[in-house]
């Protein structure tokens, strides 16, 4: 990257505080595809000149997959360790690159002693657009392109955030098309509830294939996502359907970064 991503430890050593902490998440840290999204979120933050930092190697799993799998012990161990780190740095506001991290820190950490203002990166993008700090210029044009947005369960139904990601896409002047099952009625990609980490039970179809079939019905050029797990499931689906050339699965952060030539 053309700039250095600041860590909390560095900022603290310099006696500074960030405006916002970017919580990267495990997928965003290790998964190759999701790493690109992580870097794009940093590029956006850098581009608008927002003072931010990441935890770097001090970050740790939020415990979400353990909790959804039923292991409350492991979840709370992770949660309390993370809360200790976050509180030690006096964190006030967090942006996450993953709806699962978002939901867990926002809703489940306060009861364990960690209360922060938490937003998802699509909300951050929407805010930046609303404030006039971010536009869609100087980069790839999405004008007239057919884009369909897949609602991540933990952002949509889980927390009622349906508009922010759509607003972030509207600024592109693209042609937004909705799938039959969208918003509160959106169909899961198949990864939630710790399904990401196991083989599916016996059935007649994989959930991500069911979802990709529906997405392809809208005849899109881009399928927009807002979650690294959805990204994996949808990309796998597109590969399976042999549509990689015609249809791109892109995170909203990637689309925003591209539109701004970042």
């Amino acid at each position: 990257m053309e700039f250095k991503v600041p860590t909390m430890a560095e900022l603290m050593a310099a006696g500074e505080e960030p405006e916002i902490l970017f919580w990267v998440g495990c997928a965003g840290s290790y998964d190759e595809r999701a790493q690109k999204i992580t870097r794009d979120i940093c590029k956006i933050l850098h581009h608008v000149g927002m003072k931010y930092a990441v935890l770097g190697t001090e970050e740790s799993c939020t415990g979400d997959p353990a909790k959804r799998a039923g292991n409350e012990f492991l979840f709370q161990m992770q949660a309390m360790t993370n809360i200790e780190v976050l509180n030690a740095y006096n964190i006030k506001k967090i942006v996450t690159g993953c709806p699962h991290c978002f939901n867990t820190i926002k809703n489940e950490y306060p009861g364990l002693g960690g209360t922060y203002e938490v937003i998802h990166h699509t909300q951050l993008i929407q805010d930046l657009i609303n404030d006039g700090k971010l536009k869609a210029e100087g980069g790839e044009s999405f004008k007239g392109k057919k884009i369909t947005y897949h609602d991540p369960c933990y952002l949509g139904r889980g927390n009622g955030i349906y508009e922010a990601p759509r607003k972030a896409l509207e600024v592109l002047d693209a042609q937004l098309v909705e799938m039959k099952r969208c918003k509160s009625n959106g169909l899961c990609c198949g990864a939630g509830g710790a399904q990401m980490f196991k083989e599916p039970e016996k059935g007649k179809k994989d959930v991500n294939v069911e979802r990709i079939d529906e997405a392809l019905e809208t005849n899109p050029q881009v399928i927009a996502a807002g979650c690294p797990f959805c990204m994996t499931m949808l990309s796998d689906g597109i590969k399976l359907k042999d549509k990689e050339q015609e249809v791109k699965v892109l995170d909203i952060a990637e689309i925003t970064a591209r539109a701004n030539g970042l």
Binding site: M1, C26, Y30, S60
Partner: peptide, 22 residues
């Protein structure tokens, strides 16, 4: 998660390696 603080088998020391990519 218990051993590596991530649901996959990666080293915690590599957690910030993403920043070196492009």
């Amino acid at each position: 998660i218990e051993n590596n603080q991530a649901p996959w088998k990666y080293s915690p020391a590599d957690r910030f390696n993403w920043a070196e990519g492009n």
